[in-house]
């Protein structure tokens, strides 16, 4: 009797501990179809950009666009990759992105270290206020920045654009770095201090090497942020061009194949960097912030 009573419980138990996705059950089919649909829709815009960039203008503007790549041509790429066209904006974009990343680390890392060593309450207050600077719309900052930089002669200069990009990047980088330094155990610093290393010596020899992965991630964030920026560039660059700016100008003039080609040039390094970064942008990385 007791055996039959236990019998109906078995499948019930099985549904509780079942791990979905192991093996191929019919109910999983819908799940897989949905996953493939979502993945396809997410990749479709990138495919279309690439497709248009290797189409002739006539094909790209046909009344009914084709889904597959027909009449593949590298004509757009050959024309736009000429150094007279791509060179100056590429130089500006690269110099500004690297400059922003390096300066952001140099300014934010020391500050982030000190903030990470503050008592808990003060630390959260500072980190939260850094995050809340996001509430400022960028245009409210960019308008006076543009008029100030014009009077200081910083328009159309790499330095001016780097300084503008730092405004947006610094809070983000500081936030990431506070998280990095927080988890470095203080005992290590103590024992180093006991061993007679000076304050700066301890920082450089003990703390810095441990923080390097986090610093690299923060640097890549800053680089991406600067590489992608259109807003400050459009405010500050009037005669010179960055890559996003030249993409925008082609878009407003309406040569669709050129816009697609520039978009692919702009997106490729970024997508590669993001795929590398995925090792670090784990969801657990954000969970600390969610739990507050």
């Amino acid at each position: 009797m007791s055996v039959t009573a236990a019998e109906p419980q078995a499948p019930e138990q099985a549904t509780v501990v079942r791990e979905p996705g192991r093996g191929f059950a019919w109910e999983n089919l819908g799940f897989w179809l949905l996953a493939i649909l979502i993945g396809g829709v997410l990749l479709l815009p990138l495919y279309v950009l690439f497709k248009v960039s290797v189409s002739s203008l006539a094909d790209a503007t046909a009344p009914r666009p084709s889904y597959l790549i027909e009449n593949l041509t590298w004509e757009n790429w050959q024309r736009l990759l000429a150094w007279e066209i791509i060179g100056p904006p590429l130089q500006h974009s690269l110099i500004v992105a690297f400059g922003t990343a390096i300066l952001a680390i140099l300014i934010a890392a020391p500050a982030a270290y000190v903030i990470s060593r503050l008592p808990r309450g003060t630390r959260y207050l500072i980190v939260l206020s850094l995050l809340f600077t996001r509430m400022f719309p960028e245009v409210i900052i960019a308008t006076p920045i543009a008029s100030n930089f014009f009077s200081w002669g910083l328009n159309d200069t790499n330095l001016g654009l780097i300084m503008a990009h730092l405004i947006r990047t610094l809070p983000l980088v500081a936030w990431v770095l506070v998280g990095t330094f927080e988890v470095i155990p203080r005992d290590l610093e103590e024992s180093s201090a006991v061993d007679g290393a000076g304050r700066i010596g301890t920082l450089v020899r003990i703390v810095l090497p441990l923080a390097l992965p986090g610093i690299a991630v923060a640097g890549i964030f800053a680089w991406l942020d600067s590489w992608n920026d259109l807003l400050y560039a459009i405010y500050l660059f009037l005669t010179e061009r960055t890559l996003p700016l030249i993409t925008y100008y082609y878009a407003s003039r309406g040569t669709v194949t050129d816009v697609a080609t520039f978009s692919v040039i702009l997106a490729v390094p970024v997508i590669l960097l993001t795929l590398v970064l995925q090792r670090w942008i784990r969801s657990g990385y954000l969970s600390g912030a969610v739990k507050g």
Binding site: P20, G21, R22, N28, F31, A35, I38, G39, L42, L43, P45, L46, V48, L49, V52, P65, L224, W227, N228, L230, P244, T247, Y248, A251, V256, V259, A260, F262, S263, L266, A267, V270, I271, L273, T274, L275, L277, Q278, I281
Partner: peptide, 28 residues
Amino acid sequence: FRGRGLFRSIVLVPLGVPTLVAGAAMLY
């Protein structure tokens, strides 16, 4: 599920796409 890593990578791809490019792609 099997293929979760690949699905996660695909889902995160647009995160890296410049905002400007997201707009440009939508033109088409």
